[in-house]
Design a protein around this nucleic acid. Structure first.
Lengths: 143, 143
DNA sequence: TTAGGTGCAAATCTTTTGCAGAAAG
DNA sequence: CTTTCTGCAAAAGATTTGCACCTAA
């Protein structure tokens, strides 16, 4: 699935949910798709979107990001290392289970793993702690 | 190891690192030990410490918390659910590998698991991604 | 005695909100 | 047309910092 296709799909999702399709929203989504693996912060998304729609305001970006999060298009992520929220694209399907982070303590780079490493572990948690795991969040710190 | 003993140990660590042992710092550490499993926020630690040392200021608590984090007495944790940093005690030994969270999406309760579930997974990450895992951060969300 | 610590208030930083004008459906 | 969006500026909430006064060692 290429970017244009994804953009269309997300646009449809927006409209299906009763939201209007504005230039600001399309541009914001396009920026996010352009940096799919980059875990941008709101500020970074704002800056990049401004290149395309110069009159956009930061508040609009925050509102769009919030909206996309509610629609499960985006995931919010917070690393202790910096004070802000980062956003990353939910891979359409079972993202909740197939997505972890590698964070380099030396260069700050963030990479993703899309292999599910934890099914056995989740089963164990379920059995030992009477806890229904809906999703998990896993970050490895290292070099 | 009981609380008094832990407090002594941490006090020694502070002094060994060249910090002075003040009433505010002892009281703050005591509060943290009293709520060892509670993942308190700075504000909560401040409130509780104020009961013992009423003249303490929030800024001092933040400074102490920062200091304890640098000394690896505490760990900072951020959940997407609320905007603030929570602090939890590093279990003296190999906390980095033996500590995960269960977060209940219904009642908001946070529990800890002290079993290391991931050694096999870390090995795999190391092999597949040329990545030296120093520590990881894992939260399960569910009911 | 003196370097480091403290409380307070002001500053900062990220995110949210109120509102009057603009635009999508 | 009408409901939803938008940009701006102001507000809010968490954390940090500057400074003059304390205090542990």
């Amino acid at each position: 699935m290429d970017k244009a296709e994804q953009l269309d799909r997300i646009s449809e999702q927006l409209q299906a949910a009763g939201y209007k399709l504005t230039a600001q929203r399309s541009a914001t989504v396009a920026v996010i798709l352009d940096h799919a693996q980059a875990h941008l912060s709101a500020e970074q998304i704002f800056m990049a979107t401004k290149e395309v729609v110069p009159e956009i305001g930061l508040a609009t970006v925050y509102r769009t990001l919030e909206m996309l999060t509610e629609l499960h298009v985006l995931n919010k992520v917070r690393f202790i290392e910096d004070g802000m929220t980062h956003y990353d694209l939910c891979e359409t399907d079972h993202d909740h289970h197939f997505h972890h982070h590698l964070l380099c303590l030396q260069c700050g780079a963030i990479e993703e793993i899309h292999t599910d490493l934890l099914p056995a572990v989740e089963q164990q948690v379920h059995d030992d702690y009477t806890f229904a795991v809906l999703y998990h969040r896993l970050t490895f710190h290292g070099i």
